[in-house]
C-alpha cells in the first residue's frame, strides 16, 4: 500500500521535479502522524486507569492530527499561486485551532475526573491488577 502511495507521489511529482522534496516531506509527515495515532489507540485500550489513558489520548491525538494536517497541506501545494498559499494558510489555521483546543479538552476531562474523586492506580493496585491478569493465563 505504501508502494502504491509512493509511486503515485513519484509519478505526480515527476512532472515538476522541484516539488518532489516537499511532497516527500508531506507524505512522511502523514505516515508519522498515523503511527502516532496508532500509539494513541493502543494506549487508550491498554493503559490501566483513566489518567494514563487520557495522557495517551491527549498527547497522541494533538500531535498526530497536527502532523497529518500539515503533511496534507504540503502535499496539496502544487505551485506558488495565490490559491495554493490560501489553502496552506487555511490548513495551518486548522492546525492552530487544534493546537489550542485539544489540550484544553483533555485538561477539562482530566479535571472532571479529578473532581469526581477518581483516583489514579497506585503500586499495590497495579500489582493486584497484574495478578488478576496473570491468573487466567496460568489456568
Amino acid at each position: 500500500m505504501i508502494d502504491t502511495l509512493a509511486s503515485a507521489v513519484l509519478t505526480e511529482s515527476a512532472n515538476s521535479p522541484g516539488w518532489f522534496l516537499v511532497h516527500a516531506i508531506g507524505v512522511s509527515m502523514g505516515i508519522v502522524g498515523l503511527i502516532f495515532f496508532l500509539g494513541t489507540a493502543v494506549g487508550v485500550v491498554r493503559f490501566p486507569d483513566f489518567y494514563t489513558r487520557m495522557h495517551a489520548a491527549g498527547k497522541g491525538d494533538t500531535l498526530s492530527t497536527m502532523l497529518m494536517l500539515t503533511g496534507f497541506g504540503l502535499v496539496m501545494m502544487e505551485d506558488f499561486s495565490a490559491n495554493s498559499w490560501l489553502l496552506l494558510l487555511k490548513i495551518l489555521g486548522i492546525v492552530l485551532f487544534i493546537f489550542i483546543t485539544t489540550p484544553t479538552s483533555s485538561h477539562a476531562l482530566m479535571r472532571a475526573a479529578f473532581e469526581d474523586d477518581e483516583m489514579p492506580l497506585g503500586e499495590e493496585d497495579l500489582n493486584k491488577l497484574r495478578k488478576r491478569r496473570a491468573k487466567p493465563k496460568s489456568k
Partner: peptide, 19 residues
C-alpha cells in the same frame, strides 16, 4: 456539578469564541 469555572478552559474559550 460542584466546581467553579476552570481558568484554562475559560481562557481558551475566550480565545476561540470570537473565532
Amino acid at each position: 456539578v460542584d466546581f467553579e469555572p476552570d481558568l484554562i478552559v475559560t481562557n481558551t474559550v475566550r480565545l476561540i469564541v470570537p473565532v
